[in-house]
């Protein structure tokens, strides 16, 4: 059971009144795999991410994480997961050390002092430990969030646009850190980004969502080949500018 799926989502459907945000999403994520979730704004990827995090309940479909249904086993499952997002912050009035201590306690991290020191050093920010979180630059705050996200050596990690608003240097460092840590710990990661370079460099497989439906799935190279494009950015633009019917037609080919 070493490679049993970390996430098994079957036919997830979410409607908000008459608006269908997600339609028939099925995905499997295995250990040591990074799955990129792509889509234009409003495509349904945030809804998908929120369902995977247990923040939103699906209208239909089943979701199993570590072989268990998510909602009834939420706390046990979340102990083995973590999350970081460009749109979420740690309390700005606390120091970095206080914030990381709090989450180390919440996740029950053993030997938390050593773990926090190790991660801060790996992310090249040990000097920030006593700094007030609200005074950090975007790049520093993102790295502190990543430190929090890897505190409990998660088996499943959800990263929501971790390189948004970062300069190329810091983005590169973040990508390398995520990749190296993930490989060392066989972490399964769901990774969303609008930065196609991120996706090409970091993700093993990707899933394009458009108007609530999966329109393409495969390795970055396979998807580019199937859409006859030279870059993922061109695939993204092609999907974004297509009529829904065209894209769904292309998706059949892609799959």
């Amino acid at each position: 059971m070493k490679d049993a799926p970390v996430i098994e989502a079957m036919h997830l459907h979410k409607a908000f009144g008459a608006t269908v945000a997600l339609e028939d999403l099925s995905l499997t994520l295995r250990p040591n795999e990074i799955l990129g979730l792509l889509g234009v704004n409003g495509a349904g990827k945030t809804t998908a991410l929120n369902i995977l995090l247990g923040l939103t309940t699906p209208t239909r479909g089943t979701l199993r994480v570590f072989g268990q249904e998510l909602m009834p086993n939420r706390v046990d499952i979340l102990k083995r997961c973590n999350f970081a997002s460009a749109y979420v912050s740690l309390p700005g009035n606390l120091t970095v050390g206080q914030n990381l201590w709090t989450f180390a306690q919440i996740y029950g991290v053993k030997n938390h002092k050593a773990k926090i020191t190790e991660l801060l050093e790996l992310l090249e920010i040990p000097h920030l430990r006593s700094r007030v979180t609200g005074q950090l630059s975007a790049g520093e705050a993102t790295r502190v969030q990543l430190c929090k996200a890897f505190l409990n050596d998660p088996e499943l990690l959800l990263l929501d646009e971790p390189t948004a608003s970062l300069d190329p240097d810091i983005s590169d460092k973040v990508r390398k850190f995520v990749r190296s840590r993930q490989q060392a710990q066989r972490t399964a990661i769901i990774y969303t980004s609008h930065n196609m370079r991120d996706i090409e460099e970091v993700c093993d497989r990707l899933l394009f969502i458009h108007k609530g439906r999966v329109v393409a799935e495969g390795t970055p190279t396979a998807v580019m080949t199937l859409f006859q494009q030279e870059s993922l950015e061109d695939v993204f633009i092609q999907i974004a500018r297509s009529e829904a019917g065209d894209v769904f037609g292309a998706a059949k080919t892609a799959k």
Partner: peptide, 18 residues
């Protein structure tokens, strides 16, 4: 509200906190 104001609420609600 402190968690809402500091945009930390998601960190708490996706953590193993009952």
């Amino acid at each position: 509200l402190e968690d809402v104001w500091t945009r930390n609420l998601l960190n708490i609600f996706v953590a193993p906190v009952r």
